[in-house]
């Protein structure tokens, strides 16, 4: 059976094609302001990647902030359930999953079958989401992709007072004016953000193994700060973590089919 999993996120829309439980294709596109066309574009890209035709897909499963726009979906999977299933799919030893995307952060406690036991979420506030790092990158005029590697080059701990991304923008600009090197500023930004995600994980309990999915998992600076804050050596991250929820949605549908 071939299943397409689509995660229509705030920033990117991701699609994966699963054939008998194995990932055979992926596609990602910027969500922009037209979610429906982003869904179609990302699905087309994943089909192309898998080398199959739209008619070959048996069922579509959707998740993410814009899941209502996935018109052909046979099933709509709640984001918490999708991320729990994704973590279990990639790492059966996973007991805690955190998903940090552009506009949200979540932490879920799961059992050995990927069932949700407890969860904590942070949404509708940029302070606890990837948007925070993006806004800071713009403020200090650094490419977003550069932020993480820059943070890794610093061993300073500069506390940030502002919590809100808007106020933090002025704070980091102030640091630039005070001639603080951008590496140290970037580290301060990641530390601040990681401490917020960690306090959310602490609410559900820190149980290893810990898995991270979502676009922010691609940021090595963030992952470094996260590990340090959690006091653990390893955070498990699948290849292409941004596709995590899309995979989870597809797996949920497969198990229910």
């Amino acid at each position: 059976m071939i299943i397409a999993g689509i995660d229509c996120g705030a920033k990117n829309t991701k699609s994966v094609i699963l054939r008998d439980g194995k990932i055979i294709g992926k596609g990602m596109t910027l969500t922009g302001f037209d979610q429906a066309s982003a869904v179609k574009e990302s699905l087309d890209a994943s089909l192309k990647d898998a080398g199959i035709d739209a008619r070959d897909v048996d069922k579509i499963s959707g998740t993410g902030a814009g899941m209502e726009e996935i018109k052909d979906a046979a099933m709509k999977v709640n984001e918490i359930r999708a991320m729990a299933k994704a973590a279990n799919y990639f790492f059966p030893s996973a007991r805690t999953v955190t998903d940090v995307g552009a506009e949200m952060g979540r932490a879920v406690k799961i059992d050995e079958r990927g069932k949700v036991i407890d969860f904590a979420i942070n949404e509708k506030c940029a302070a606890g989401a990837g948007a925070f790092i993006e806004a800071m990158a713009r403020a200090i005029e650094v490419e977003l992709e550069e932020m993480g590697p820059m943070a890794l080059r610093s061993d300073k701990s500069i506390p940030m007072n502002a919590q809100c991304a808007i106020f933090a923008e002025s704070e980091v600009v102030g640091l630039i004016h005070a001639k603080t090197v951008k590496e140290d500023i970037s580290k301060a930004i990641h530390d601040a953000m990681a401490s917020r995600i960690v306090s959310m994980i602490r609410r559900i309990g820190v149980n290893e193994d810990i898995v991270m999915i979502g676009g922010v998992a691609l940021n090595p600076g963030f992952v470094g700060c996260l590990k340090r804050e959690l006091g653990i050596d390893r955070v498990y991250i699948p290849a292409d973590p941004a596709f995590g929820a899309a995979v989870g949605a597809a797996v949920v549908l497969k198990e229910e089919a």
């Binding site: 509708k124 506030c125 940029a126 991304a165």
Partner: peptide
């Protein structure tokens, strides 16, 4: 609809585009 200024900015950009 967004309370967060960062998200409200994105929303406003979308409204202008519409």
């Amino acid at each position: 609809s967004s309370i967060c200024v960062v998200y409200a900015k994105t929303e406003a950009t979308g409204l202008l585009r519409k």
